[in-house]
Design a protein around this nucleic acid. Structure first.
Length: 494
DNA sequence: AAAAAAT
């Protein structure tokens, strides 16, 4: 397989004269659509992807989030299909020729909107198909014939079974957020869909992150792919400032409302690892007068779309989300993301914080972490190949200032995977024997600068979480809302 | 260990 990537060479800055969309030989109808939107210059990923896709090559594309991947594959696909576009009204003349799969419904919707916009001056038809919505309208559109289908896997297979869609003419398959599409939860459906496609077709895979494992699996679906890598893979945008605050599990909810209030945040996504946790946090915030709403997979599709729309409109200021919102969603000018829980997968961290700092804008990614998260933190820092500054959150557990090895041995044996062992025993050192992990120096965020007041609450982490397995969702169960008013009162306003 | 995706 041919590689464009070369870690040493900055692929973007190299191209001195600025390329324009008009240079790709795209049809006037496509250029007109771009002009409508005010786009003249392609982003680096677009500059690299468009010619390769136009050649008909398979692509494995890794690019930072918010860099315009969607247009990077949509524009050349439209161009390729346009060569044989039909003006006929007959559905038979409009077989599905391009299929774009995404891991969430909202992302499918968003990609479909983009495709519609880019193809609006062409005779090409497109539609989006996902679950949680009435089958009937989707069926009607599919029966009328569309060249481009954007879909989530389950509902697409449903349509296949109902014989409302025929995939035997698909020439181009796109997997957006490909690494997620290839994970265990999606793979069976994906395989089923692929079995319905012609053997000879063009395959495009895009994601911000590709683990080594997934890269191999991905390659098995591709033929002589061209790798397109803008900036180093698995990287986070450097325009996003990452911050870590240590808190106790009990303090998390109050820490979130504290941060929102003190920073005066009017647009922020707060990520929770669980659906129930997201719902509870949203309720908690609403009780505190915050305009918050939750989005997760246990909500109806109507509720999900309403929450996202209200958030985009600014009616909702805090969107509390599970990882349903971690990938791909493009929310204009989102200045801040908060990780209420640290994600279990380091990749998800990259995707989550990629919701902010899009299209070159600045963004803040604030993560709360507890004693139990140390392993996750190490994984994340390894993945993003940088250390995140650990800061102190005024008035909250300043045990933050101490790394685990400085702590007194635990009295209780609830951390069975760590009990009796020390850091050197925990994986990372044995994987990289040459360079041992150096925890970053803590700094105190001048914003939240406040003297540490030792309190009995600081050690409460290990006391309260008795039989609850210390999982984030359980831990926040009926715990009485701790009044933080006293601490907040004495805090300097910014 | 959890979330997503068909009903």
């Amino acid at each position: 397989m041919t590689d464009i990537k070369s870690p040493a060479i900055p692929t973007t800055e190299q191209t001195a004269p600025q390329v324009k969309f008009a240079d790709f030989g795209l049809a006037p109808e496509i250029l007109r659509a771009l002009t409508d939107q005010g786009y003249v210059h392609p982003t680096p990923i677009q500059e690299q992807a468009i010619p390769v896709v136009l050649q008909g090559r398979d692509v494995m594309g890794a690019a930072q989030t918010g860099t315009g991947k969607t247009a990077g594959f949509s524009l050349p696909i439209i161009q390729l299909l346009l060569a044989h576009a039909s003006n006929s009204a007959s559905p038979a003349r409009h077989p599905v020729r391009a299929l774009i799969l995404t891991p969430t419904r909202e992302l499918a919707d968003q990609v479909a909107e983009n495709v519609k916009a880019y193809s609006r001056h062409t005779p090409l038809r497109s539609t989006v198909v996902f679950g949680g919505m009435d089958m009937a309208p989707q069926t009607a559109i599919l029966r009328n014939g569309v060249e481009i289908v954007i879909a989530t896997p389950g509902r697409l297979l449903d349509h296949v079974q109902q014989k409302t869609v025929n995939l035997s003419q698909v020439q181009i398959l796109v997997m957006d957020e490909a690494d997620r599409m290839l994970d265990m939860g999606f793979l069976p459906d994906l395989q089923r869909i692929i079995n319905l496609l012609p053997k000879k077709r063009q395959n495009l895979m895009f994601s911000a992150t590709f683990s080594q494992e997934i890269k191999k699996l991905a390659a098995s679906f591709l033929t002589n792919p061209q790798t397109i890598e803008v900036a180093r893979s698995n990287a986070t945008a450097d325009n996003v400032t990452q911050i870590l605050y240590k808190v106790s599990t009990e303090e998390k909810r109050d820490a979130v409302s504290f941060i929102i209030r003190e920073r005066g945040l009017k647009q922020v996504i707060v990520f929770s690892n669980t659906k129930i946790g997201a719902s509870r946090l949203a309720v908690h915030l609403v009780k505190q007068g915050v305009k918050a709403s939750a989005i997760h997979g246990d909500k109806s599709q109507q509720e999900r779309m309403a929450a996202l729309e209200a958030f985009k409109q600014g009616e909702v200021e805090v969107l509390v989300a599970t990882d349903v919102a971690a990938r791909g969603l493009d929310i204009a000018e989102l200045p801040c993301v908060i990780n209420f829980d640290l994600p279990y997968n380091a990749e998800d961290y990259v995707h989550r914080i990629g919701r902010t700092g899009r299209a070159g804008a600045k963004g803040d990614a604030i993560s709360l972490h507890t004693d139990q998260d140390e392993r996750l933190l190490i994984d994340i820092e390894k993945m993003i190949k940088q250390k995140i500054v650990r800061l102190n959150l005024a008035g909250f557990v300043a045990a933050s200032v101490h790394q685990p090895e400085h702590r007194a041995p635990r009295e209780r044996g609830e951390q069975s995977d760590r009990g009796g062992r020390d850091r050197s025993d925990r994986g990372e050192r044995s994987e990289r024997p040459a360079r041992s992990y150096q925890p970053p120096k803590e700094k105190v965020d001048p914003w939240f600068l406040k003297p540490y007041e030792p309190s009995s609450g600081a050690s409460s982490t290990s006391n309260n979480t008795t039989a609850s397995m210390a999982s984030p969702s359980n831990a926040s169960t009926p715990a009485k809302p701790q009044k933080r008013a006293a601490l907040l009162g004495g805090f300097p306003k910014a």
